[in-house]
Amino acid sequence: METECQNRLPSQPIYAQSIPQLDVRVLISIIQDADHPKAIELVSMVNALPSSRVFTNVKWEAGVIDPSLKDALQKTPVGSHLVLCGDERFIWSCWSVANQAGWLNDEMTLLKTEHVRNLYCVHCGQIQPITTQAEVICQACQVKLFVRDHFSQRLGAYMGVCLDANQPYGGDVK
């Protein structure tokens, strides 16, 4: 499988560059936005497979997914594969549910559509959405954060650490 970046931290997620050819018992696809070009390509490919289930325009909030989907993820037979297609926040929210249901990383393909991701402030614990920026002010504690590539699967978020050691507290950001 092609990867986005060769010089990555071990914790940095690997997103598929293309949809893999899979010989599996059941293929489940969970799609955030059915109109995205990657989603359209995915649906046209998986619809040709005999045992494929596609969930599109899935309702979700951080860690909370449509209960019927959760049920489907738990009852799938071993030997199945899961494709999560959406922005990074969506992908890791679904990943968390799948992980609790017993899915393993090598049974999942992550197909990223947009650069929307979560950032975890190590100083106050706030998780906030960001895009590609490398510096962000924490919404909760106002500390100016450096966005590290280090990623927590459990939190589904990148790590934000104080950018300037001389300005360790929020509120006095110039």
């Binding site: 037979p77 071993v78 249901a101 017993g102 899915w103 049974e107």
Partner: peptide, 9 residues
């Protein structure tokens, strides 16, 4: 036996 197990096994 192995064809009848659900994810999580």
């Amino acid at each position: 036996l192995l064809s009848n197990q659900s994810v999580g096994t």
